[in-house]
Amino acid sequence: MPRATHEGVIQFGDIEIEVAVLDDGQRLVTQSGFMVGLGRIRPPKGRQYYRAGANLPAFLTVQNLRPYIDENLVAAASQIEFRTKQGVKAFGYAANFLSEVCELFTRAHHAGVLKDTQRNIANRAQTIAEQLQRSGSTHLIDEATGFQEHREKKA
Rank of each mutant, 00 (worst) to 15 (best):
L22I: 14
H6I: 11
F97C: 06
A54F: 12
D14C: 02
R27V: 02
T84L: 02
R83C: 01
E100M: 03
A77E: 09
K115Y: 02
I41M: 13
T30R: 00
H6D: 02
N96G: 11
Q131V: 00
E152W: 15
A155R: 04
A129D: 10
V19Q: 15
D116Q: 07
T106M: 03
A76I: 13
R40G: 00
N64G: 08
T61Q: 15
H109G: 10
T106Q: 04
N72E: 15
I15A: 00
V62L: 04
R107H: 01
G39E: 08
E16S: 11
S99L: 01
R151I: 14
G8Q: 08
A144F: 11
A94T: 07
I17T: 05
D23E: 13
L38A: 06
V62T: 06
L73T: 15
R124N: 08
S32C: 02
A155C: 08
R3Q: 10
E18R: 15
I128D: 04
Q79H: 14
K45I: 07
T145K: 12
G92I: 12
Q31E: 11
Y68F: 15
V19M: 14
L65M: 11
R51L: 00
T61C: 02
T117I: 00
G25D: 02
K45E: 14
P43W: 00
F97V: 10
H6Y: 03
R134D: 08
V9T: 15
E149V: 12
I128N: 05
A94F: 01
H110C: 03
N72H: 07
F34N: 10
P67H: 09
Q26R: 01
D23N: 15
P57W: 05
G53L: 07
V19G: 13
S99Q: 06
R66H: 06
A75G: 12
L140I: 11
A4I: 07
L132K: 02
T30C: 00
R134C: 01
F97K: 01
T138Q: 00
L56T: 00
C102T: 14
R134A: 01
N64A: 13
S137H: 09
Y49E: 01
R119P: 00
A90W: 04
L38M: 13
E103F: 00
R47K: 14
Q131M: 07
R119T: 02
R124W: 03
V88Q: 09
F59P: 05
H109D: 01
Y50V: 07
S78E: 03
I17V: 13
